Computed example of a mutant assay.
Amino acid sequence: MVNFADFDTRGYPMVDVRTGYGQWVDSYEQTVEDAMDIAVLDRLAVPRWEDVRRAADLGCGTGRTGAWLRGKGAAAVDGVDVTPQMLAAARARGAHDRLTEADLADTGLPGAGYDLVISSLVDEHLADLGPLYREAHRLARPDGLFVLVGLHPYFIMAAGMPTHFDGADGAPVAITTHIHLVSEHLTAGLTAGWQLAEMREAVVDDAWIALKPKWERYRSHPVSAAYVWRRTEG
């Protein structure tokens, strides 16, 4: 297991997920770039978003992913998050049919009830990937998909940068960050019973440099990764 503390170059004070996202909620939409996750989802070939009858959005946050799914034609989306303030923002956005405050390892959602399970920018906050992959497998219908997109482990290590935001006093605050190698995702997914259907890695390119000029030093470095898993058994 790789320890983020071995790569941390910022030394920001760190808080747990519920505390951090509860404090970040008001500025979250203005600081998270679609290039990190939405742009990667847009490039996936396997998912047919318009055919999704019901999706489970795990770690739904303010509802960004749910709104994107609805825009792509998904008929219904249920959201789960551990942070009440994020759920309130998602509720105001109105993209989800049902919103639940729960741990992603134990959502309480109906088993085998979803064509698609999706999780965006969540895995770096989990100490262990296994429970997420197992819960997603429980939720998916036979032949259903689990799509996970997040920060690339290489980028977290190369930049030495945790997930962070500026607190009310303007000082940076980090949220608990873990590094999961690609092999850890593959092991967790296969162990949970998934079959890998597609994987994409995005790099820091011209579009990213336009958004964040200081990232020129990371040009061509992997920044995001997306995994598409299929539940093949009944």
Score class of each variant (00 low, 15 high):
I179G: 00
R10Y: 12
Y154T: 10
L186C: 09
R219E: 03
M86Y: 04
T31Y: 08
A76C: 11
Y114G: 02
A90V: 06
G234N: 14
Q85K: 11
V77I: 15
K212L: 10
V173E: 00
G66L: 06
A225F: 03
T19W: 08
L139F: 10
L87H: 01
Q195V: 15
A56P: 03
Y114H: 05
L87P: 02
L132T: 01
A202L: 06
D8F: 04
V52F: 04
W49H: 11
L41S: 03
L41A: 05
A76N: 12
L126V: 01
D57G: 07
E216Y: 01
D6A: 12
R231D: 01
R141K: 15
D16E: 14
T83A: 06
G20V: 04
G79N: 05
T62A: 08
L58P: 00
R43C: 09
I156L: 15
R230Y: 06
A207L: 11
I118N: 03
S119P: 02
G160E: 04
G20I: 03
I209A: 10
A158I: 03
A45H: 13
A225I: 15
F155L: 06
R98I: 12
L148K: 08
P142A: 07
D166M: 14
T19Y: 06
P110R: 14
T107F: 08
L116M: 09
L69G: 04
K212D: 11
E124W: 14
M161N: 13
L104V: 15
R217L: 08
V77M: 13
A45W: 09
V2T: 14
D78W: 11
A127I: 07
S119N: 05
S119E: 02
A95I: 06
D34L: 07
P13V: 08
I118Y: 00
D206E: 13
I118A: 02
Y28N: 01
Q195I: 15
A140M: 03
D8N: 12
L109F: 07
G113E: 04
A207Y: 14
R54S: 08
W229V: 00
P84D: 15
V203E: 10
V182C: 12
L104C: 13
T177Y: 02
P153I: 01
V147K: 03
W229M: 03
T65D: 00
T19I: 09
N3Q: 13
I38R: 07
G66H: 04
V40H: 02
P84N: 15
G79P: 02
A210V: 11
Y218G: 04
G234K: 07
L181N: 08
D128P: 00
V2L: 14
L186H: 10
Y114N: 00
D37N: 14
A127M: 08
W49E: 08
L109H: 02
T9V: 12
R138Y: 03
A89S: 08
A45C: 10
G20M: 03
